[in-house]
Amino acid sequence: MYNDKNKQKIVDIIKNAARKHSLWVLAYGTGCGAIEVPATMTSRYDAERLGVRGAATPRQADVLLITGYLTVKTLKRVIRVYEQMQDPKYVIGFGSCTINGGMYFDSYNTINQLDLYLPVDVYISGCMPRPEAVLEGFGKLQELIGKGIANGAQQYKENLDFYRENQKKVIKNWDFQDYNW
């Protein structure tokens, strides 16, 4: 299903075309970047014209927007939320702090590198990224989906042990169920 472009079936091309124009973003402001999300959704930038729209619960959402730094306490919730989402699902890392810790590189409570714990499809750099940058990030994600290579969820399933190990290293009170869907 998530082959590269040469092997993409016609069905997948149609599916991906629909998916890329209908990205439902989970309403979860995990960090300070959440302040620019309303601006992205409203009149000047209006992400809805690209099919980007808010979704209330993880079951309905396609895109998990990690808006900024993740504290260990939030990371646990984010992983839970991510695992509740249904395939195909994408993660956008938003802001410098998801890439390398940003200005919180030496904080005892924030993780530095998001892609050790969750598969990230697109990173948006900046602190904080402007709405234009956010839109470009969505554009990049659409491009990847169109090519059929936004396969973070697949990667997560295949390398579950790797991710689990990293997650357990950070989250002390580990009580997750098996991830088998």
């Binding site: 810790g101 030496d106 002390k172």
Partner: peptide
């Protein structure tokens, strides 16, 4: 949440060392 180290705001707690030990850097 489930913090096991010393109280973190005490000055003898070294946050950079803790971060280096626990969180990988790119």
């Amino acid at each position: 949440e489930s913090w096991s180290g010393p109280p973190p705001m005490r000055r003898d707690f070294e946050t950079d060392k803790y971060a280096k030990d626990n969180f990988a850097t790119r």
